[in-house]
Design a protein around this nucleic acid. Structure first.
Lengths: 195, 195, 195, 195
DNA sequence: CATGAATGAGAGTTCATTCAT
DNA sequence: GATGAATGAACTCTCATTCAT
């Protein structure tokens, strides 16, 4: 029944995700998930021992989804600057998308459950993105599109800026324009002049 | 009366701050604050109606403290780059300081209590810092220390990066070295070469 | 499930009734009911959201009980005066019965929860009794037992008098004799002379 | 300082009355009275040991007011029927007057604090009114206005009816018309035909 | 006498978790 | 495996009452 269990878990996860998106992590109760999933109270415990476990699984499945969603859409002849711009604009959309976002819940979760070093999905995703950006920048430097002595730090800087924008969107609020200006500044810092 | 009440509020605030630092915002209960403050259950309600009110006051008093703490220490002959570096290193210390930090609680609070536009202390502090940095950068440009076409965006970029580092410290963890490298990259972006 | 729930509700209702009888409406706490019912604190909330809901259900079940309890006992050959007397003496018993009476709690409930027009059980019961009395008096008039030009008002007058006796029993106290004298006066007013 | 104390008590009583009228007996808290009276929390306890004592005093002062308020207004040449009608119409007004009425609070008080036999103000007032009515009816009988064999019971019947109307006004609601019809029925029962 | 800050018992309510069926 | 009724600890908040000033 490992098969059946997986299907059930998927079902729970999907519904739980909706709840987490809507209410964040802390405000979500087992009851909420039980009601959304149309599963029995006891049934939930057959698959998950506590709310944290559920959330972690939601996060995992989300992380898996995010990975390949980007790659496919890149045109053959795209320049490094094109790709970077695409990436940043994708991030912009996600930052502005308040609804249907796990951002808040994720932060909340990590506030409560301090980094278990390994198995820190957030960190893995972050590092993956950094590595990708670094390669991209390095390639842009090679093709003379970018000017950058430290692609590794540039990549990290971009990621921290995005992270800063993301959290700011949740707390102090942020406009699309403000993000655009930051995107512009990032490209500027890499020596890209015209837009 | 008003005087005494203020003193009592200060006392409660101090203790409440400790609790918020330790447990974050959501996990903190009135009971926690009551116990720490060595005040009676009902007594707390004489001064504050709910945890949100207490937290906001803690935040306010913290914001007030932060404001003037920096100014005094700047040497007369400090260059713009010196000052910027000092500011960034101050921030570094604060980012790394897990204990005695309200960061987490603050984010949690703003997750729950969405932007009251005005009176958003976080935003006000952010904008104040941006304005200060912008002036600093502009002055650095004038003195030929910095190269920067868009001081406003540069200032914001620095602030978003710091915000990204701050939240990362709470979620995926971060080292002092990593922050140093970002500081270095910021200066680099402003055209400062030797360190 | 629905079946079991109903049985449990009945059980709670029975115990809650005891508490309401003993302590009235306002002084009754959820805790009281919980303790009497030998149910858990949270358990009660599975069936009822607040004390008002419980009380209303107690009232409903009581109202249902009262309805048919009277009819069956009337002898075939009873005259209108006989029946009226029987009714009044039944009421007398109830008025004097301090213990096992929901009267006080009922009044208290309706003080707090002002007339929801429909669904006002008290009113419904009152009007039902008025209608019954009116028919009875009219029939008595036809059979020359009673003299009454306004059976509708006579019926209401009887009911208001009973209500007055009932509340007086709870506040200023009342004796069986006093009620008897009022019963006598009622019959007298309807032109019934010998007793 | 017995004099000063009395003045203070009067002040408290007046304000407390307002609160009791507005919120009833049980829902009224010491806090409410303190706030309305603009007296200190501790100060209240200097004069009254508990809410019951305050209410009883309010009731007493009210009872004193009611006593003489009626007598003065009777015209010299009024017949017994005139006076009775005046009395009943006065009562009607009071019954309909939901606001500015201590009725509910009074019932609530007597529910909680069972009749101390002596010193039952409610009873005393009731009996006073009964005695007055009895005299009135007897006088009416002598002047051939009324037909009544048992003025004592007639008087009591009127009072119970009024009591019934009063409580009904608070629970199931009642219209002015309905009261009028009862007044009409009372007069009819006393053999008064034209109105 | 008078004050009002402080107390603490106790009310209502919620929720993660268990366990008999 | 699956259910959902039941549990009880924990939380928020209120209020009569006290007592140092």
């Amino acid at each position: 029944m490992g098969e059946k269990a997986k299907i059930k878990k998927q079902l729970i996860l999907g519904k739980a995700r909706e709840v987490f998106v809507e209410k964040g992590y802390k405000r979500t109760t087992m009851k909420d998930i039980v009601e959304k999933s149309e599963i029995s109270r006891g049934g939930l415990y057959l698959y998950y021992e506590n709310p944290a476990q559920i959330f972690l699984d939601v996060l995992k499945s989300d992380s898996a989804v995010g990975e390949d969603s980007f790659e496919g859409e890149i045109p053959e002849d795209a320049t490094a600057a094109d790709i970077l711009l695409m990436f940043l604009q994708e991030e912009k959309k996600e930052i502005l998308r308040k609804k249907d976002s796990l951002v808040q819940a994720t932060y909340e979760y990590y506030f409560e459950n301090k980094p278990p070093k390994r198995d820190n999905i957030l960190k893995r995703d972050f590092e993956t993105a950094v590595a990708m950006l670094e390669k991209l920048i390095a390639s842009g430097v090679r093709s003379k599109e970018f000017v950058c002595k430290t692609p590794a730090e540039a990549a990290r800087s971009i990621m921290y800026t995005l992270e800063g924008l993301r959290i700011s969107a949740q707390t102090i609020g942020i406009t699309g324009d403000a993000i655009d200006r930051q995107i512009y500044y990032i490209l500027l810092s890499l020596g890209v002049s015209e837009k």
